[in-house]
Amino acid sequence: MVMGFGGITELTADQCWQLLRSHELGRIAASAVGTVDIFPINYAVDAAPAIYFRTAPGTKLLELAINDRVAFEIDGHDEHEAWSVVVKGHAERVERQSEMDAAELLGLSPWIPTLKYRWVRIRPTEIAGRRFSLGPEPARL
């Protein structure tokens, strides 16, 4: 870990994956035709590691078909610190039955009462995270 200005600590890739595995709600940013959209998703992480989510036909799936480059982010905090993890990579539809069967074993179900039969996998190319010590703003000079 590297301590930076103002109590900011860079996380290792292993620490980032540990945080990703311990949570289940994040945001995916996708861009198509000059527009960036951000979607909340519940997700799971496999051993590869890769990030999986389920979706239905719509804007998110259409944008991923046009441009597969995405950013995925999770964050959290307690009374003493906050943290953020960002994964950049390529999103792809999971279409082979054997891969869908393996994804089903991750135990991921939709949070809302909708049918989401499309599996999407984010294959990471970059991962970065930071932990922030919380406290009052320093006195101004």
Rank of each mutant, 00 (worst) to 15 (best):
2 V>R: 12
3 M>W: 14
4 G>W: 07
6 G>N: 13
7 G>M: 13
8 I>W: 07
10 E>M: 09
11 L>C: 07
11 L>T: 01
13 A>S: 15
14 D>F: 04
16 C>S: 12
16 C>W: 01
19 L>D: 04
20 L>M: 14
20 L>V: 08
25 L>H: 11
26 G>A: 10
28 I>S: 00
28 I>H: 00
31 S>C: 06
32 A>V: 11
33 V>A: 14
34 G>P: 06
35 T>K: 15
35 T>P: 04
36 V>I: 10
36 V>H: 05
39 F>L: 03
39 F>A: 01
41 I>E: 01
41 I>G: 00
42 N>F: 02
43 Y>Q: 05
43 Y>A: 04
44 A>M: 07
46 D>M: 06
46 D>C: 06
46 D>F: 03
46 D>Y: 04
46 D>T: 01
47 A>M: 08
48 A>W: 06
50 A>K: 02
52 Y>G: 03
53 F>M: 11
57 P>C: 13
57 P>W: 07
57 P>S: 13
57 P>H: 10
59 T>Q: 15
59 T>I: 14
60 K>N: 06
61 L>M: 11
65 A>K: 03
66 I>P: 01
67 N>C: 08
67 N>S: 13
68 D>Q: 08
69 R>P: 03
71 A>M: 07
71 A>K: 03
72 F>R: 00
72 F>T: 01
76 G>D: 09
77 H>D: 11
78 D>W: 13
79 E>L: 14
86 V>Y: 05
87 V>R: 02
87 V>E: 02
88 K>I: 09
89 G>V: 01
91 A>Q: 02
93 R>C: 12
94 V>D: 02
95 E>Y: 02
96 R>V: 03
96 R>A: 09
97 Q>R: 14
97 Q>Y: 09
98 S>H: 13
99 E>H: 14
101 D>G: 05
101 D>E: 12
102 A>L: 13
102 A>M: 11
103 A>K: 00
104 E>A: 11
105 L>F: 04
110 P>L: 07
114 T>P: 04
115 L>H: 15
118 R>E: 05
122 I>V: 11
125 T>R: 08
125 T>C: 12
126 E>I: 08
126 E>T: 10
126 E>F: 10
128 A>K: 02
129 G>A: 07
131 R>Y: 03
132 F>A: 10
132 F>Q: 06
135 G>C: 13
136 P>G: 15
136 P>R: 14
137 E>P: 03
137 E>N: 09
139 A>R: 12
139 A>F: 12
139 A>S: 15
141 L>R: 15
141 L>S: 15
